[in-house]
């Protein structure tokens, strides 16, 4: 048990490569990628458009297959999707015919719980994202931020070891985005989960992540890992925070 707990949520990526075919020509997206995600850490993946960050997340989720190489979770090679992982997409992807509470309980129900059991457990996560007074609302009655909170609650409710987030706040307005970032930071502090966050927002990456993986745009380049060793809760205006942002901007040649 203690050994299993030590590696709970550990992900190893070995010699991972993937290309797509575009107009009959292969287009490499990921090239011989090697790294480890530490158990319980928050890893952010950033990179320019076309750097393969979303593809990498989809391979981790088991929604895409790599051409070569492998992904190991707790020492075991993954094959397709698995219930130890949960994905939060850019769109909330709620089922319009289910109420908030039943959307949050959806993952629990597909994993074998009855509707009532699922509701009982889902209730805690609905409260966690602050939507208890909207339990019986339908998705079309929710704002964008509220809908995304439901999606987050649904993923947390199945108590995954690894939470994969694909630009989850990308479609939200600036104000909602900042308040959701604070909420995610709070949730990650309280829940025992390894998180992988794909984002194009550098500030979001610094605010939320323990480490940032930067994928190169040109496939000859090497990916880089940056440690963000800032105390939490983080403050965007501290000199250390600003220094990290400048460092990242420099890496993208934007300074």
């Amino acid at each position: 048990m203690s050994i299993a707990h030590a590696v709970r949520g550990e992900v190893t990526i070995r010699h991972l490569s993937k290309s797509f075919v575009l107009n009959g020509k292969p287009l490499p997206v990921l090239r011989d990628l090697n790294f480890k995600i530490r158990p319980g850490e928050s890893l952010a993946i950033v990179g320019a458009s076309g750097s393969g960050k979303t593809t990498l997340l989809r391979v981790l989720a088991g929604l895409e297959e790599a051409d070569s190489g492998e992904v190991l979770i707790e020492g075991k090679v993954i094959r397709g999707v698995g219930t130890e992982r949960a994905v939060i997409f850019q769109e909330p992807r709620l089922l319009p015919w289910l109420t908030v509470i039943d959307n949050v309980g959806f993952g629990l129900e597909t994993q074998g719980l009855s509707r009532e059991e699922a509701r009982t457990r889902a209730r805690r996560y609905v409260q966690l994202v602050g939507l208890q007074s909207f339990e019986n609302a339908y998705p079309r009655q929710l704002s964008g931020g509220m809908a995304q909170r439901v999606g987050i609650a649904r993923a947390l409710a199945v108590q995954p070891e690894i939470l994969l987030l694909d630009e989850p706040l990308g479609a939200l307005d600036a104000m909602t985005k900042i308040s959701m970032q604070q909420e995610l930071a709070r949730i990650w502090r309280d829940e025992d989960v390894t998180t992988v966050l794909v984002t194009h927002d550098l500030e979001e990456a610094i605010y939320l992540a323990d480490r940032i993986l930067i994928l190169p745009k040109d496939k000859g380049g090497e990916p880089r890992l940056i440690e963000i060793d800032l105390p939490r809760p983080r403050d965007r205006s501290t000199p250390a925070f600003v220094r990290h942002r400048e460092e990242l901007l420099n890496l993208f040649g934007l300074h």
Partner: peptide
């Protein structure tokens, strides 16, 4: 996208049909 979402929660073809395809087609 909804079908993909259901797959990530381990839903098989029968569950996807019953919980996604059928209600969405009504």
């Amino acid at each position: 996208k909804l079908i993909e979402m259901a797959r990530t929660y381990g839903a098989g073809p029968v569950t996807i049909f019953r919980r996604i395809v059928l209600p969405a087609s009504v």
